[in-house]
Amino acid sequence: MKTFEPSCDLATWKARYALTEKIRDFFKARNVQEVETPVLSRASGTDVHLDYFATLGKPTRYLMTSPEFHLKRLLAAGFGDIFEIAHAFRLDEVGCKHNSEFQLVEWYRVGMHYEDLMTEVEDLASTILGKKIQAERLTFRDAFLRYAKVDPFQATADDYRKALKENDVPDVEGSETFSTEDWWDYLMVTVVEGHLGKDAPQFLMDYPESCAALAQTYVNANGDTVAKRFELYIENMELCNGYEELTDPAEQRRRFEADIAWRKANHRPVPAIDEKFLAALEHGMPAASGVAVGLDRLYMLALGKKNIEDVILFMDDNA
């Protein structure tokens, strides 16, 4: 018989609520304005790694995978530094670290460099976890060199297969047609990610250009074009995704169209491009860095829980 009861007990919920109030106090002390944006929109992000929920009615509307586009529209409208504690929705497996509906805090700092925003993420994590968080800053290249013994900017398919063999990871059917990005994804999941944040907090940063999403890029000392993007890992848990934000509307449209082309070629759902977001970039969005932190996972760490169901009231399969 299916139970009606929540998975999170009252004491844990009260503790979670107190942590959420700490987050609001954190931003209030920094004069960052809280805002609220829609959960439903007539457009969605095109990221090839994210699948979304769409309504059946006409016109189609989408449950937001992140409040990012609405928040950037507010930046372009002159709102300045802002944050939102929001629910986001992604088609995903339900598991110990995943739920299709989850809570995040997303914020944007006008004029801030992404490495300075990384420091602010450390400050927020320190506030919620009750201990000083100072994470190693590890580039995408250095992570692959350290944990997989391959240079992702120079490796061949044979190099990746050797790395799999040395880590007792099976080759995957169809790998003979893998793109470089496919190899990165497979090695990240099977070899690299298991090490990240395991012994101490780590930022993974400076992703390859093709992984930039909505981030600015630059040419590093090795001559490679990399993204001003970062993720924080603590206790092998990915907690955030942040960028120094792209403000070029033409480049952003090009990236959206490339995502759409990939989705069509791979028979994946194709969302409507957010023209109002692009209009905001055309109007002029100020230089800014932004980040989204998954609160359910952060609260798991703060409250010593091993499963996401222990910190939310109703999981997707019991909602």
Rank of each mutant, 00 (worst) to 15 (best):
M1K: 05
P6L: 09
A11I: 14
K14A: 14
K14N: 15
A15N: 08
A18S: 09
K22R: 14
D25L: 10
F27D: 05
R30L: 11
Q33S: 06
T37F: 04
V39N: 01
R42D: 04
D47C: 11
H49F: 12
F53K: 07
L56S: 10
M64D: 00
M64T: 09
L75C: 05
A76R: 03
A77H: 14
F79V: 01
F83I: 05
F83A: 04
E84V: 10
I85H: 03
H87E: 14
A88T: 14
F89M: 12
K97A: 01
N99E: 05
F102P: 01
V110P: 09
G111F: 13
G111D: 15
M112N: 07
V121S: 02
K131C: 04
K132E: 08
F144C: 13
E166I: 07
N167T: 12
D168M: 02
D168A: 05
V169M: 04
D171E: 14
V172E: 12
G174Q: 10
E176M: 08
S179M: 13
M188Q: 01
V189L: 10
V191C: 09
V192Q: 08
Q216R: 13
T217Q: 11
V219K: 15
N220S: 03
G223C: 08
T225W: 10
T225N: 13
V226W: 15
V226G: 02
R229K: 15
F230N: 02
Y233V: 02
N236Y: 00
Y243K: 02
E245C: 10
T247Q: 15
D248R: 12
Q252A: 05
R255W: 06
F256S: 10
I260N: 03
K264F: 01
R268I: 00
P269W: 02
D274V: 04
K276D: 11
K276A: 02
L278Y: 03
A279Q: 08
E282D: 13
A288F: 14
A288I: 09
G290M: 02
G290C: 13
A292V: 10
G294E: 00
L295A: 07
L298H: 08
L298M: 13
L298T: 08
A302Y: 04
L303C: 08
L303Y: 00
K306D: 11
I308C: 00
E309Y: 05
D310T: 08
I312P: 03
F314R: 07
